[in-house]
């Protein structure tokens, strides 16, 4: 089977997955004990307003018609509108205005996790059973077991009171920022300003980066621990494999041995971990964004769910499912490129 047939098959198999997830979402929202109309208006909603919303949402149509409407609208990316959070705004506009901050957060979360987790894991693997290996391994295990939201709460406190606690002020470090706030990403929308108005634009970029680092560290914490552990095992396994011994025997220098023969092969098992991070980021972003009050998609979802904006919740759920499925396909495909031994039928 060629690579593209494989890709095609993978995409085809993902269609029932998306339909299933969306159907479950539909079932929860439309068949659950809470009617969307009642949820939108809250407990005090009067009967006439409820009827009006029911009519506009088509809640009085036969169920199969509602189902087909719901599904076809989503599949055609007619994502409906928000009812409570920002009444009357198309959902797509809301998502476009909230998404950049979440993407920014996710980008740094992955980067920090990769930048710290993998080197630490490889270091531990190259120096197995030493004190620093045990220290790093144990740290990774505990770090992974820590609840994200708790870590976030502690980090917020420590950073916002760092002056009193350590005599070092995080808020005025390099650039003046607050700990609990949304980063301002206006610069990224208009990157030419980095050249035309360098002073202001670079400061803003630095601010946005500095603000996102603590939440990104928290969000990446679980995957950092996992990456470290798996990186360590992968290195240990590669070191003990025959071809490394052969390379050693034929006189390859230790430097080339580590970088060319061990490092590159040890990266393979890390691929699924890196993509698996997407799942953690999607779930974790709700908590981290709530604690750091970053106006991102996670917070939007949480607020929408809490305030009963069920149509918006359904739309967001659909987008998350698409994202996860898409990432899974990318991961499998990347796997076949990186490691040709992986079968296409697996």
């Amino acid at each position: 089977m060629s690579r593209f047939t494989y890709l095609f098959k993978r995409v085809a198999l993902s269609i029932p997955v998306i339909i299933f997830g969306t159907t479950v979402t539909f079932a929860i929202i439309r068949l659950g004990p809470l009617s969307p109309a009642a949820a939108i208006l809250g407990p005090q909603g009067d009967a006439r307003a409820i009827r009006q919303i029911e009519k506009r949402l088509g809640l009085n149509d036969p169920l199969w018609e509602q189902y087909f409407d719901f599904m076809s609208n989503l599949f055609l990316f007619d994502l409906g509108q928000s009812w409570v959070i920002n009444s009357g705004t198309p959902a797509i506009d809301l998502i476009i205005s909230y998404a950049p901050r979440t993407i920014w957060l996710g980008f740094w979360a992955v980067l920090i996790a990769l930048g710290i987790g993998i080197p630490l894991g490889f270091y531990a693997g190259l120096n197995p059973n030493t004190f620093s290996d045990y220290f790093a391994s144990f740290g990774g295990i505990v770090w992974r077991a820590m609840p994200n939201f708790w870590l976030a709460v502690i980090l917020v406190t420590v950073l916002s009171q760092s002056e009193q606690l350590f005599g070092f002020s995080w808020t005025s470090f390099i650039v003046e920022t607050n700990v609990v706030t949304s980063p301002n990403l206006a610069v990224l929308k208009n990157p030419t300003r980095l050249l035309t108005d360098p002073g202001q634009a670079w400061t803003n970029l630095a601010k946005a980066t500095k603000q996102i680092l603590p939440p990104a560290l928290v969000l990446g914490s679980a995957s950092m621990g996992t990456e470290m552990r798996i990186g360590r095992t992968a290195v240990l396994e590669t070191i003990n494999s025959k071809y490394v011994e052969t390379a050693k025997a034929k006189g390859v220098s230790p430097r080339v041995l580590v970088w060319k023969h061990i490092f590159r092969n040890a990266l393979i098992p890390l691929v699924p971990v890196i993509t698996a991070e997407a799942f953690i980021l999607i779930g974790g972003s709700v908590l981290v964004e709530t604690v750091f009050s970053i106006n991102g998609i996670g917070l939007l979802f949480f607020r929408a769910a809490e305030q009963g904006d069920l149509p918006l919740v359904g739309t967001l759920m659909y987008l998350f499912i698409l994202l996860i499925v898409g990432l899974n396909i990318v991961q499998d495909f990347a796997y076949t490129i990186i490691d040709p031994r992986v079968g296409y039928d697996g």
Partner: peptide, 26 residues
């Protein structure tokens, strides 16, 4: 395989949040 893939493709924590909200007064 397909069913389990589908369940795993749903963001777990968000699904639970949605369900707790919907079943709040049940």
């Amino acid at each position: 395989v397909l069913t389990s893939d589908s369940v795993q493709a749903m963001p777990a924590l968000l699904l639970v949040i949605l369900a707790t909200v919907v079943f709040r007064n049940h």
